[in-house]
């Protein structure tokens, strides 16, 4: 009983943290405390105050406004990257499981291994070295890496389902691989995909921050948490708070998403066990 309550706390804490940042990002479309790009050199490097809640940067821009718009970038990149990963990975995983043991399965699996051999950062570097740095290329790099992740999770979940008798019953009802995958397999691996989705979402935010930090992600003037950290690096001795706030934003968002993912898994797992 106590165990269940504690998990529920994690789930709610995660939902609140992640929800806060999504709200911040959405709010930034209609309102920010200051225009996020407005410079005011006279007000540069101010510590947090009533006027500028989180202080100002080296050009006198409002840090709070930048953080809010930066949340937008992070979330957009991570969501699209998860979308790419799911959009391509889930069908591939279903296909591989439906044809388990065949050459199609083998090609899909080895293809996944191959992508895994390129750490996502190296994919990003390859892409940007040819196409130049941009948020779109960052999305592509993270998204490509997500494809085999989702393919594997889907295939793994689907494989254990394919051994169950209800799949045999569906085949006796004249249904073929594709239809069985959609009707019987997909709904029953959806739990796994939701959990993996939140994990990849948080990893995407971390990856975007890393790429932007080294200049391979969103380009100026689009604010992003990674680049705010990069800009703050030369000012570490002078204004350490500039390094603090974007980092905290990343940590809290990722923490929230991870807690949410864990909470969802715990919430869904026992029910799965009772039903299966």
């Amino acid at each position: 009983m106590r165990r269940g309550t504690r998990r529920r706390v994690g789930l709610w804490l995660g939902a609140v943290l992640a929800g806060t940042f999504v709200t911040m990002a959405l709010l930034s479309f209609v309102w920010t405390p200051w225009p996020y790009a407005a410079m005011d050199i006279a007000q540069k490097l101010r510590p947090p105050s009533a006027a500028h809640w989180l202080g100002t940067d080296q050009f006198g821009r409002d840090v709070a406004a930048q953080l809010m718009v930066g949340a937008r970038t992070s979330i957009a990149v991570a969501i699209v990257a998860v979308g790419i990963g799911m959009g391509a990975g889930v069908p591939l995983g279903l296909w591989a499981a439906a044809t388990r043991g065949s050459w199609i399965d083998e090609v899909i699996q080895r293809g996944g291994d191959l992508v895994f051999a390129f750490p996502s950062l190296v994919i990003a570097i390859l892409i940007t070295s040819v196409f130049g740095p941009s948020a779109v290329n960052a999305i592509l790099a993270i998204g490509i890496f997500n494809i085999p992740v989702f393919a594997r999770v889907t295939r793994g979940g689907a494989l254990s389902l394919w051994t169950l008798d209800y799949i045999r019953a569906a085949r006796l009802a004249g249904k073929r691989g594709a239809r069985i995958s959609v009707e019987h397999i997909l709904p029953n691996v959806a739990n796994l995909l939701i959990v993996q989705g939140t994990i990849q979402f948080s990893l995407g935010i971390l990856a975007e921050a890393g790429l932007s930090y080294v200049g391979l992600g969103a380009q100026p003037p689009t604010p992003s948490w990674g680049r705010m950290l990069a800009d703050s690096q030369t000012l570490m001795g002078l204004a350490p708070q500039l390094a603090l706030f974007p980092g905290l934003a990343i940590v809290l968002t990722v923490l929230g998403l991870n807690l949410l993912g864990d909470g969802l898994r715990d919430l869904m797992d026992p029910r799965l066990r009772r039903q299966a």
Partner: peptide, 16 residues
């Protein structure tokens, strides 16, 4: 917490 911390930011904190 450790999983949520980007290593480069952690590096900056260590330097500070």
């Amino acid at each position: 917490l450790g999983i949520a911390v980007p290593n480069f930011w952690f590096a900056m904190l260590l330097v500070i």
